[in-house]
Amino acid sequence: MTAQLAEPALAWRADPYAEALRTGRGPLYLRRGDGWLLPLEVERWCAAPDVADTTVLDRCAGPVLDIGCGPGRLVTALAARGHRALGVDVTPEAVARTVRAGGSALCRSVFDPLPREGRWDTVLLMDGNIGIGGDPAALLRRAARLASPSGSLLVEVAGADVDERVEVHVDDGRGGRGAPFRWARLGTRALCAEAPHAGWTRSLTWQAADRYFVGLRR
């Protein structure tokens, strides 16, 4: 029997994810029902932007919305560059870390009402956040409503040619686990096949430090 799925916001607020953000350390994983593990790079998320992140920051224009901002490394870096930048995350500890670092963030779901809807020049879905909610089509449509008419969406995708919708839970590898929730993983080909149905067209793809990115335009 499949366990009852948690609301995604509640799943991410629960330990061990919140504890990992508080300490800035892993290990932390997304675990599928078959035992497969996806490592979550907590230390990288809590550090300053790296070389790959810089390639994303360099492609941001105008006001920027970071969906699933985590501890806010990109939001704070964008603010330091003079951008109007806002992070959105369902985890209070993520929002608190972002604010402590000097960034702006709201504790709410991307599907909740947000400031400046339809006026963000750049929207970010980094660190696998195209998986939020387990429904990339719905997330892409929502991002299109948030972006300005000439806006762009920068997405970090899986390096593998993958297109999956799965049930996962957060696992710290030491016996701690969160409630199950839906997640998705998309590679470049899968994202580019899905994007036109949500009003996006591919503008560029790039790779940096073994991470993979796709730029979409309205």
Rank of each mutant, 00 (worst) to 15 (best):
M1Q: 12
M1L: 13
M1P: 10
T2M: 05
A3M: 11
A6G: 04
E7V: 09
A11K: 00
W12P: 00
R13W: 00
A14Q: 09
Y17Q: 04
A18H: 01
A18T: 14
R22P: 01
T23Y: 03
T23K: 11
G24D: 08
R31C: 11
R32H: 09
D34E: 10
D34F: 04
G35H: 09
L40P: 03
W45H: 13
A47H: 04
A47N: 06
A47D: 12
P49E: 05
A52E: 03
T54R: 13
L57S: 11
D58F: 00
R59V: 08
G62H: 05
P63D: 14
L65K: 05
D66V: 02
I67Q: 01
G72F: 10
V75M: 06
A77D: 11
A77I: 09
L78V: 07
A79V: 12
A80P: 00
G82N: 06
L86I: 06
L86F: 09
G87V: 06
V88I: 14
D89V: 01
E93T: 14
E93P: 03
V95P: 04
V95D: 07
R97D: 05
T98N: 08
T98A: 03
R100E: 15
R100V: 02
A101G: 15
G103I: 10
S104C: 12
S109T: 07
P113C: 03
L114E: 03
E117H: 02
W120E: 09
T122R: 11
L125Q: 01
L125I: 05
G128W: 04
N129P: 10
I130R: 08
D135W: 02
A138W: 05
A143V: 09
A143S: 15
A144W: 14
S148Y: 10
S150N: 13
G151A: 08
L153N: 08
E156F: 05
D161Q: 10
E167W: 06
V170R: 03
D171T: 06
G173Q: 08
R174S: 15
R174I: 00
G178P: 04
G178V: 04
G178L: 05
R182S: 13
R185W: 15
L186Y: 10
L191D: 09
C192M: 15
C192V: 14
A193D: 14
H197N: 06
L204T: 13
L204F: 01
A208I: 03
D210C: 02
R211A: 04
Y212A: 06
R217A: 14
